[in-house]
Simulated assay, not measured.
Amino acid sequence: MKRTLIVTNDFPPRQGGIQSFVHGLAARMPADSVVVYAPAWPGCERFDAGLPYPVVRHPTSLMLPTPGVARRAAELLAEHKCDTVVFGAAAPLGLLAPRLRAAGAERVVMLTHGHEASWARLPLARSLLARIGRHADTVTYLGEYTRRLLAPVIGADRLLRLAPGVDTAAFSPEVRPGGAAAALEAELGGGPVVVCVSRLVPRKGQDVLIRAWPWVLRSVPDARLVLVGGGPYRGRLERLVDRLGLRGRVRLTGPVEAADLPGYFALGDVFAMPCRTRLGGIDVEGLGIVYLEASASGLPVLAGSSGGAPDAVLPGETGLVVDGASAGAVAGALVELLGDPARARAMGERGREWVGREWSWDLVAARFTRILGAEPAP
């Protein structure tokens, strides 16, 4: 049997879209065909104990393409008799590919996300990305936005699409809030709820949602905004809520366990994450799996127009795409969705159907299996 070594900085119990993506791929492989090499993270011992395949943890919380990491990855390749290496993110660990080729890897697959698309825009990073890509048999991309940026650097012939899947059983309109989410639902009252599930970082646009909220309340006075997640931006967001006098109208939950997230989506009537591109195009959204999870949950979505985020929405059918930097545009779109519940529900139903047809994990796992089994590049 062919065996695969996944080398990745992005793996649970650390939360995030890339972490869920890589874990989802590994979980759908035969347990005796995969080994994961990933950094240590608080809670990893308990998490790893529940997995059917081995996870070897690097002693620190970050792996860089250093000789020590290369040596350990090569040892694991030999110890577990792996013939394929998958880099959970091409940059920067893909720089290890030549060392692992020399150690016996017959096939090298590299996944890309938003940050590789950002590298493709910067001269020095672009040259490093080209160097990384030269040592891959296949480099995957999320959607049309990332493909356009990567093709001139990596080469279109090496690129294949592989986007995350959605667990449509876990994320479903049938899910009801439980535990802390149920308690929060009771506190919110009976008005419409806009929910945002994401890390609290500037690119995701939670600050724009808060700035838009006074305009939303003029049209929908009983609306509530719930921001789910933790991150370094939380303190600033809390201060913004206080400065605008929105305490009680806007709630921040703090970090939430991944298993509890479907219940927080279930709080909402609308999902909104108005992401925007920052730092001259360096900080950009690669796709936004949360939009698809929201659609699977039966919610209409409001997305920002950053990077590949529009690839996760059918504009006018499953949701709306707006300029995530404009509080006025965000407020207008939210009022449009909240003011027409029948249209919003129809968008949610259409989104659920679309995700089940185009974004299921069964489809993604089958595509990944084909990528792993392809013939190595000459």
Rank of each mutant, 00 (worst) to 15 (best):
M1R: 12
L5K: 12
D10R: 12
P12M: 04
R14C: 08
Q19Y: 13
A26G: 09
R28T: 07
V36K: 01
Y37R: 10
W41Y: 15
P42F: 03
D48F: 02
L51C: 01
P67C: 07
H80W: 14
A91D: 07
P92D: 06
H113S: 02
R121Y: 03
P123E: 11
L128H: 03
A130Y: 00
Y145F: 13
Y145E: 14
Y145N: 04
T146M: 02
V153W: 13
I154N: 03
A156W: 15
L159P: 08
A170N: 15
E174T: 10
V175M: 02
V193C: 12
V194G: 04
V201G: 00
P202Y: 09
D207G: 13
V208P: 00
P214A: 13
L217T: 04
V220W: 07
A223R: 09
L225E: 00
V228C: 09
G248S: 09
R249H: 15
T253V: 03
E257A: 14
A259F: 03
A259D: 13
V270F: 05
R276H: 12
L279I: 09
D283S: 14
S297Y: 12
S305V: 08
S306I: 04
V321K: 07
A329V: 15
L334S: 06
L338T: 09
A342R: 11
G351E: 04
G351R: 03
V355E: 10
R357C: 00
G373A: 14
A374L: 05
